[in-house]
Design a protein around this nucleic acid. Structure first.
Lengths: 364, 364
DNA sequence: TAAAGTGTCCGAAACGTTTCGGAACAGGAT
DNA sequence: ATCCTGTTCCGAAACGTTTCGGACACTTTA
């Protein structure tokens, strides 16, 4: 009878498709229930009869009911936004890096698998990196955050820790605190150095990432450790800091190394873009790779297999990294004060850019 | 008297700083105003005394008041989310393309300049491309959308048009409707062909983007037009569709072209990744670029300057594209039914990968 | 003096949801 | 009859904001 009253009231064919979205009240009327019961039915509470639940669900279906998130959040601020935030450090450190681009793609996919959405933001030009994050947190835009391109002593980590907001990091900053993180294996660079030593190289140089980032320090430390483990003298002058994460940084760094009075016979770029920049520098000097000098990269971006020579590099399983980051973050959202570290081991992909140490070692 | 009652009720020193965020009521009490007036003061309405406005602002400042977005949106659904949505077509078409990565970066920057946030999403593996968009629209997650990687007859365009949701596209789909779009200049490929003709080339091949995308068709049309304009016969067999946007697609396409009984002496890849894949194919065949064959790309990703040989390519001003997309979208949000097209002209960057037509033309 | 206008203010209602407290009812045990 | 238990239901309040309509005190105009 209630249903009948509804039908005549609303017109014949269509159930109030008129203006805006149907509300819970509309569903309740159609189902012949109170708003309360309809809410409980749709949210799977226990004290609702099976029959009622069915009617409620069917009515919701029929009306194309979609709950109003604003209202829900207003009533129950703890309900969360079903959104995760991803933040970049600065406007100049961006997705030009194909590694970051791929990582982002992987994260987007994993996020939607879990029914979440992704919120992406960066500080404006005149802001501190942490400012954009503060804004997002204040507005409760996301349930948790992924921090990329960590700085050595990253303010964002301490801010989120203090605010008790869940987050996950790629890489391990110096900042103390309990949180979840995904990091590369400690000994990743060892296999690269090992490979070079097997080929007879003694003087192994490095093009390091710009200082100030957590990952820069880490890779540097593991590189020197790897050298020591192979009884090579860690010659400080064979390590050059690049001034960017991109190809041009790699090129100028390589040129600096070639100016050395006794240049290395092999060089490891701490990411693929740096290595590719190094290759460009070598090519324009007329040097042959790997004939005159061997080059190794880090990340294994898709391009590494398509340049000439193809690039020997430490492969990071970028899809898996993205998945892990999101999974860890969701775990952190469920259990805020947790502390966990997932280690992922890069794998050396041997290609054309590495070869035996040249016999007459003095190039240039 | 009201203020006095308030004070005694709340205790002496602190104005209810206890637990969660301060509300408008707290600000009002501190300012000695009604909630109504405080709201109007903070929102810059006209019927509030200067003195009151000052007190309200100061109180808000002191309490660190941040308006509750959920409540605001609940009351006034037209107020918008200050968010724009960016959607990708499918999970496999992602930011591996450095062009898309750079574009996204540019958009993120521009978005934050305008005080907006960005919402990024993609359909899950088993969804239609339009499904993720529908979800986002239903939940009113964003005020408008940027559509990338448009398909020839893109369902998302018609869906958003029908739903009267503002959006902007990169490229021009076939779907009719009035909306804003940013497109490359019609004659972009003409300068590339012109350059090759100047170098004496007669047989110019193309590695086209996979079919089904708006941009694929467009570039193809302009390519053949450019050939005609230079009185070259448009030999269909010299045009190969790549089966992906990435390097491997370019490689296999190039190999196919090399299998031609009379291969082209110059090839244009319709994006840089395809061109780089082509270079890889040529290199593994032992062919010299540009000695044996010239190669041109499209986009000018940062890498184009660092491979060997450096890549002649049509530069897309990616930062400007990103800015324009966002600006157009914001304009569309202000004026929903607008129709506008912004044309951006790519510029030919001549580098090492193009040279004179080889004298003994029959390679291989 | 009355009417009309101006500048400033406020109470109350509304947005759509969830939840608290209790009500109505059935059945079984006392 | 009375009490208890359990199931199913609902009214009303609450979340924090904006806005509608009206109110008050003054000043200007007729």
């Amino acid at each position: 009878m209630v249903a009948e009253a509804r039908n005549t009231a609303n017109g014949d064919e269509r159930p109030t498709l008129s203006s805006s979205r149907p509300t819970l009240r509309d569903v309740a009327e159609l189902a012949g229930l109170s708003v309360t019961q309809t809410s409980r039915a749709l949210n799977g509470h226990s004290d609702v009869a099976n029959d009622s639940r069915l009617r409620a669900e069917q009515a919701a279906q029929e009306l194309g009911y979609v709950p109003n998130l604003a209202a829900r959040r207003l009533k129950d601020p703890g309900s969360g936004t079903q959104t995760i935030g991803v933040t970049l450090t600065s406007t100049t450190q961006r997705f030009s890096d194909p590694f970051l681009g791929d990582l982002l793609s992987a994260m987007v996919d994993e996020v939607s698998c879990h029914g979440f959405e992704m919120h992406l933001f960066s500080p404006t030009a005149d802001e501190e990196p942490v400012a954009a994050l503060e804004r997002s947190v204040r507005h409760k835009r996301a349930d948790g955050y992924v921090l990329l391109r960590l700085e050595s002593d990253d303010q964002r980590v301490s801010f989120l820790s203090d605010a008790h907001v869940p987050f996950v990091t790629l890489g391990r900053p110096q900042t103390k605190g309990s949180y979840r993180r995904v990091v590369g294996a400690e000994d990743s660079l060892d296999s690269a150095v090992s490979h070079l030593v097997d080929l007879g190289h003694q003087r192994v140089g490095a093009i390091a990432l710009p200082p100030g980032y957590a990952i820069s320090d880490r890779r540097l430390i593991h590189f020197t450790k790897a050298l020591e483990r192979h009884d090579l003298t860690a010659d400080e002058s064979l390590i050059t800091m690049a001034d960017s994460f991109q190809e041009d940084g790699g090129r100028t760094a390589m040129e600096k190394l070639l100016g050395h009075r006794q240049p290395p016979t092999a060089v490891i770029g701490f990411n693929d873009q740096l290595a590719i920049g190094a290759l460009a520098a070598l090519s324009s000097r007329g040097l042959d790779v790997p004939g005159d000098i061997s080059v190794i990269g880090f990340d294994d971006v898709s391009l590494a297999r398509f340049i000439t020579p193809t690039l020997t590099t430490l492969r990071q399983p970028v899809d898996r990294l993205g998945q892990l980051l999101i999974q860890q973050l969701l775990a952190a959202i469920d259990d805020p004060e947790s502390d966990h570290e997932v280690v992922v081991k890069p794998e050396l992909m041997i290609r054309e850019s590495t070869g035996p140490r040249p016999t007459a070692a003095t190039a240039n």
